[in-house]
Simulated assay, not measured.
Amino acid sequence: MSYNIHQQVFALSAASNILSACKGTQQALQSKLNSALQPAITNAGIGDWTVVWGPQVWKSNSASATTGPDRVWYIARNPSASFGDVSYDTYVLAVAGTAQGSLENISIDAYVNRVVDFNDWVETGITNPPEQATTVDQAKPYVAYGTATGISTLLTVGNAAKQTIIDFLATIPPTSRLIFTGHSLGGALSPTVALALLKAGLLKNAPGNVFTYPTAGPSPGNGPFAALFASAFPLISDGPASYQMWNGNLANTLDIVPLAWGIDSLRSIPTLYGKLPFIPAVIVGAIVNGAIDRATESGLGYVSLQGQTFSGATPTTPQTVKAFIQIALREHTLAYASLIGAPLVPPLCKPASSTEQARGLPILGGLYQAHLEAMEMERLDKEGE
């Protein structure tokens, strides 16, 4: 079967997440990914893609064997990728989303209440650690501190040969095409790192040969940041289907994650799947209110990046928090795969439960924790009878 360029890029994005449910030390996870990534891409049957940088696994606590990877990213190349009628030497930088056992990724979500002045960071050097802004000028572009720290890792951590992506991208011919992609957290990090590299003058391919293809990403920053991104990466419609575009976030209207972190969009979450029963409504409402408080504390008005949306069939209203999580996870993962029609790239490890994939995701991570606590209370009640 032949896959179009968007399906190929989405499959490469999916391949960055094959460690998502795995736990282990950084060294163990790195070894596992080194062995599995290229075969996974080859077996997907998406064309002549070869891993040319990385893959790189990074953990804030590299020695921990009980947590998952905090960051995974790699670059693949196809010397003749078809973009309709024309083929290009093409590189894809794929950034993984939230791993289920990553504590650092949970903290990224928590840090939407702190912000970084994007222009100041670029001007002082994006290889320097981002610094939290002490004041906010609403006319300037800002990104969440968590997002900035996430892309700082992508920019400064080198591969086994100590070569960073900045070093590698400097070797790409200007005539080659370069695509930044990622899903979920990767859907926020990949367009942001692309813009940071572009504004820092580190992409000699820019502007005509550089594209972004984020999917299901939460908003990385405020309105001026979204406007800056749109001016640097104009939205390109590239086919009849909603997923056939460049430089815009592809978002399912029934997916909770892209609704973070705009206040109005967050407020729509409790009734997204219909009117919930009383107890689930209280729990979902409380988690959402906490997210709204964090976003408000930032002093920003978070605004989603430009893009396209799609909608599937409206799900049956969930009657429990667990059912709410399961629907939300389906809308965050399988709905995109179904729309795009890319080949599935199987994970290397299976999650412990059907709801564990929610760990670390915006809103859903809090609901997952509430679900676990409710189960524990139920167990203790039964023991006390």
Rank of each mutant, 00 (worst) to 15 (best):
D117E: 10
V112C: 15
A337T: 09
E297K: 14
S298K: 05
T90I: 10
V284T: 04
K275G: 00
T181Y: 06
S265T: 15
D109Y: 09
S102M: 12
P207A: 14
S35N: 12
Y336S: 01
I269D: 01
F229N: 04
A44Q: 01
L266D: 04
T181E: 06
T253K: 09
P318N: 10
Y88M: 03
N128K: 14
V136W: 02
G248P: 07
G341Y: 10
V157D: 10
P220T: 08
G360K: 07
I41G: 00
V210E: 02
P130F: 10
T135L: 11
N159R: 07
A241P: 00
W261T: 09
L367R: 01
V288C: 07
N128L: 14
T316Q: 14
D89C: 10
A99T: 12
T42Q: 13
A313E: 12
N128E: 15
G360C: 07
P173W: 10
E297F: 15
L266W: 08
E385C: 04
Q369K: 13
C349E: 07
I269W: 11
S20F: 08
F229E: 04
T164H: 05
G68W: 00
P79N: 02
R359D: 04
S184T: 13
P79S: 03
I5G: 00
S176W: 06
A200H: 07
